[in-house]
Design a protein around this nucleic acid. Structure first.
Length: 264
DNA sequence: CTTGAGATTTAACCCGTCAC
DNA sequence: GTGACGGGTTAAATCTCAAG
């Protein structure tokens, strides 16, 4: 049952890619289900009833198209307003960490990770680690894939010897976000399909016990870790938090995909 | 701040009608 | 023929959200 705030909601978040705000609608439950397009009606329905909207078959059909091996990938990046490394632009998303869970057709899963905390330009070692971790025939899966694709394209443009492989990786990247958005809604999401909002409605996985809880926290930890006056002990501690967080993000995608495909 | 997708809003345009 | 006024379609601009 609900783990969120009291119902009914009186403040409606933007939901379903649709803005109800700014139209004088302050209570989602006042909307007339019959007049809404199905895309919005299912959100109102799930909110009224507390019964999640779950199209298992639709989700299964979408996910089963992704050929094995599957590489569930997540980057952590840093973006400096004033570029820190030669050849980077202001606000360019530079990856200093990634996690990837590689899933074989038989269900076997191996985990690979990369983390740079020495303060040097992490891009070459990151690209090399990607090449080593992700099989050339893998379907790469990310949550809000345009972000991961963008990082991959940036890396590909930088290293001619890895250009084809990295570009190919970007082309093989698919997105779990629309699958979730189209086939699942729980009212505790309150209009959000971010991984942090969705995950607790499907599983008991939780970010609250982690040292690093979100992307912003990861960036803060990274910045502290690369400072010269940060002790080795502290750096190790920060790195440990980063590793756990990033690994949780990719594991969360695996868990979500399994949940989405599982019978109700 | 970035990018991309998708939804929404605004602007532009075409066409028929009607009064002058 | 011309100008004002719809109504309906379409294109372009704007907004939101996801990721970090």
């Amino acid at each position: 049952m609900p783990v969120g705030p009291e119902w009914p909601v009186t403040v409606l978040p933007n939901g379903g890619g649709k803005s109800w705000l700014g139209k004088g609608i302050t209570d989602l439950l006042e909307l007339d289900e019959a007049t809404l397009p199905e895309k919005h009606a299912r959100i109102v329905r799930a909110t009224r009833s507390g019964e999640p909207d779950h199209d298992v078959e639709g989700a299964r059909r979408a996910i089963e198209k992704w050929a094995y091996p599957r590489a569930w990938l997540d980057f952590e990046t840093i973006a400096f307003a004033v570029p820190r490394w030669i050849g980077t632009r202001p606000y360019q998303q530079v990856p200093f960490q990634f996690s990837v869970h590689v899933e074989e057709a038989d269900g076997a899963i191996t985990h690979h990770e990369f983390l740079s905390l020495n303060g040097a330009d992490p891009r070459r070692s990151c690209a090399e680690a990607l090449m080593a971790a992700i099989p050339v025939d893998a379907t790469v899966i990310a949550y809000n894939a345009p972000f991961e694709k963008g990082v991959l394209r940036e890396l590909s443009a930088l290293f001619p010897e890895m250009q084809d492989a990295l570009l190919d990786m970007a082309h093989r990247t698919v997105d779990l976000l629309p699958v979730t958005r189209n086939h699942w809604y729980h009212r505790d999401q309150r209009g959000s399909w971010s991984i942090k909002a969705v995950l607790p409605t499907m599983t008991s996985l939780d970010y609250s016990d982690l040292e690093v809880k979100d992307g912003t926290g990861a960036q803060e930890a990274y910045l502290e870790a690369i400072r010269p006056d940060t002790s080795d002990e502290r750096r190790t501690f920060l790195g440990d938090g980063l590793t756990k967080y990033c690994a949780q993000d990719t594991w969360a995608m695996v868990a979500m995909a399994r949940f989405l495909s599982a019978a109700a």
